[in-house]
Design a protein around this nucleic acid. Structure first.
Lengths: 165, 165
DNA sequence: CAAGATTGACCAATCAATCTTT
DNA sequence: AAAGATTGATTGGTCAATCTTG
């Protein structure tokens, strides 16, 4: 019932043009940049960006490795999606799944030599993209400011989160 | 050969922390917000956001309708993706594809009554999301500024595009 | 039962090939 | 040949159900 009232409120909500502009700019920028980086990686013969992200997190976790559920939280992926991504990466020889000592239900994900290597090899290409598409487009302080605004939109809390400039 | 040199340059490129922060903030914000809006729409019994976008563009085009290739450009979709989306929307009864007079190769996409209606019905739910997730989080001038920065990143040109604040 | 993880069945996205008209 | 559009085959993503252990 409260939800219904809430929706009626929303029906009356006036959305300002700046709101729509910011929203569509976000959706478009993300689509365009993702398409660019995936294309750059593919043309260089590399796997998709998601593999890089996963390998980087696994590498950061050190020798103890990482549990799939931890990885899934850091990459913002649903559980089944994580499971299938690990399937592919394991088949490609970039990771291994070993039984977990402390918890009989789970495994630990470890990067293989090939996994470490391909992540390293991908970086120069990825960095080249980041330089062209991000770093050379706005000065550092404006990039910082952009990140703050975006984090504000992505934050879980409701209500406005102040930030200057 | 030039491409190879270019990649070597990139290998040396130093990526600043602000660059990485802005990039990951963009990727994360987009993922989180898209997941939220799709969930809101689905829970209200509506089709995905892409259908809304398509219906809105078709509606804006007026009675003459729109060619699939025009729609595809506005929504940033590949041609085959557009074709399959129109398949689904046509099967759902929201659009019709009619033969094009001027160009025998193509069709014109028209919204049906049901299509116009569902777009209208989706709006209050969508607007509610936009209010919670965007409008109430940052003041109008900061949203404007955010949009400008994002457009700068998404712009096709290479080289920095100035913008203040 | 809840948490970690996987799987079968289904839907959507992608690639390459195709078809028609300009 | 190029442009508009579709299609068969494959891959990837999603849902619901399942399995195992805490």
């Amino acid at each position: 019932m409260q939800l219904h009232l809430c929706e009626l409120m929303h029906a009356m909500t006036k959305i300002r043009p700046e709101t729509t502009k910011a929203w569509t700019a976000l959706m478009r920028a993300n689509r365009i940049l993702l398409e660019r980086v995936e294309s750059v990686l593919k043309n260089a013969g590399f796997p998709p960006l998601g593999w890089y992200d996963a390998l980087l997190e696994i590498e950061r976790a050190g020798q103890e490795g990482l549990r799939p559920f931890e990885l899934k939280e850091r990459l913002l992926l649903p559980q089944y999606s994580m499971s299938r991504l690990l399937d592919r990466m394991e088949k490609a020889g970039y990771i291994r799944r070993v039984a977990c000592d402390e918890d009989g239900r789970g495994q630990t994900v470890i990067a293989t030599e090939a996994g470490l290597r391909i992540r390293q090899d991908m970086w120069p290409v990825y960095a080249g993209f980041l330089a062209d598409a991000v770093q050379n487009r706005l000065p550092p302080d404006q990039l910082q400011n952009l990140a703050e605004k975006l984090r504000c939109l992505a934050a879980p809390e409701t209500g406005s989160c102040d930030s200057d400039s």
